[in-house]
Design a protein around this nucleic acid. Structure first.
Length: 153
DNA sequence: GCCAACGTTGGC
DNA sequence: GCCAACGTTGGC
């Protein structure tokens, strides 16, 4: 079972927002990067787990764990002209962008800061820590998952 | 198909 | 607010 990391700007949508959402679930929409789209569409499955990461904020950190709660389906926001994620070049017949549902699992009592992650030698190849990394959806290897999990388990 | 220009991301 | 990295766009 693959593992993932999902980034979100807490000002826009935080782990706390997810915890308080109806059924503790939300649609993960608005991904507009082809590599991230491919992960969602081709490799994510219900039951997969993911770290929830807060980016572009005071303390960038892993803040919780979520699970994938649906198969991938066409992202409705791409068809909504009033949405900031609207894509005039996409069509219902041949949708370009995909979404999945995400379910809250757990919020860390102590967040795991980016600063701390960088100090862990075994994570030197972790994608989140690579220079210039900008993917908002990225895979986490079994080994990386275990190492990170051990930090707060 | 190349590549410069531009926009966005995201840590600091 | 700065700036490096990267993706996308569009002229040629």
């Amino acid at each position: 079972m693959p593992y993932w990391l999902l980034k979100s700007e807490p000002d826009a949508f935080s782990i706390e927002d997810l915890r308080q959402a109806p059924d503790r679930k939300t649609i993960w929409e608005g991904v507009r990067n082809y590599q991230a789209r491919n992960f969602i569409r081709d490799a994510m499955h219900p039951g997969d787990r993911a770290f929830f990461y807060h980016s572009s904020c005071k303390i960038p950190a892993i803040v919780g764990i979520v699970s994938i709660a649906s198969q991938a389906y066409p992202d409705p926001s791409q068809f909504d002209p009033t949405s900031p994620y609207y894509d005039a070049h996409s069509s219902v017949d041949n949708p370009r962008w995909f979404a999945i549902d995400v379910h809250f699992e757990k919020e860390l009592s102590t967040l795991l800061r980016l600063e701390e992650l960088k100090k862990i030698n075994a994570l030197e190849n972790f994608r989140l820590l690579q220079r210039g990394n900008r993917l908002s959806v990225l895979p986490v290897s079994d080994a990386e998952w275990e190492i990170i999990h051990a930090q707060f388990a």
